[in-house]
């Protein structure tokens, strides 16, 4: 299958999964399970960075429209995450073994699990920091914000790695 078609298919699957998650899996107000940042995390490093930002914006808006949230909230967090991605990859991506493979997605097939976990955790930190700060701007409390941030980063990093181990690599292979 053509690479672009694969990414579009994966994007569509992720939007549907997120809409279903938002609709039926609401465990705790402090816990927000977001699978769609994983799509932005795994895009190849060779992709045009402006196109990368626009993709993040479009994906965020789609998620905002089809899940239960505020229009623009997920998009703002995803764009911030996409903008910070090159900088985070610059300091965390192992040199040597990945340089020759810039067109490959960032999955467990192309990168070690420790590096991928670190990259995922850092990018999700940016995502949730922006998301929670905008979300609680009207009613900011330090304890609530920090607790929600920690809970979301830990839970979503685990979910992302689990997704990578089970699904994403198979779809993009």
């Amino acid at each position: 299958m053509n690479r672009t078609v694969k990414y579009i298919t994966l994007g569509t699957i992720i939007i549907i999964c997120q809409a279903l998650l938002s609709e039926y899996v609401n465990i705790w107000a402090l816990l927000y399970i977001a699978v769609f940042p994983q799509f932005i995390i795994l895009l190849p490093t060779s992709m045009n960075r402006s196109l990368y930002l626009i993709t993040a914006f479009a994906l965020g808006l789609c998620i905002d429209l089809f899940s239960d949230g505020i229009l623009g909230l997920n998009a703002a967090a995803l764009v911030a995450m996409a903008y910070s991605r090159p900088l985070i990859l610059k300091f965390t991506l192992p040199k040597g073994n990945f340089d020759s493979n810039e067109n490959s997605p960032l999955t467990l097939r192309t990168i070690e699990i420790t590096s991928l976990t670190l990259i995922t955790a850092l990018l999700l930190t940016v995502f949730f920091a922006v998301y929670i700060l905008i979300d609680s701007a009207a009613s900011f409390t330090f304890g609530y914000t920090v607790l929600k941030l920690v809970v979301c980063i830990i839970a979503n990093t685990l979910v992302s790695i689990l997704l990578n181990l089970t699904l994403l690599d198979k779809i993009l292979r």
């Binding site: 930002l53 626009i54 905002d64 229009l71 764009v79 911030a80 905008i134």
Partner: peptide, 24 residues
């Protein structure tokens, strides 16, 4: 890219501040 980032973030903040739940 920085200007594009600012533009996209501004658009998002505008939507959020205009009560995005109702818009959606």
């Amino acid at each position: 890219r920085f200007l594009l980032f600012i533009l996209l973030e501004a658009a998002c903040i505008y939507m959020v501040s205009n009560n995005g739940i109702i818009q959606r």
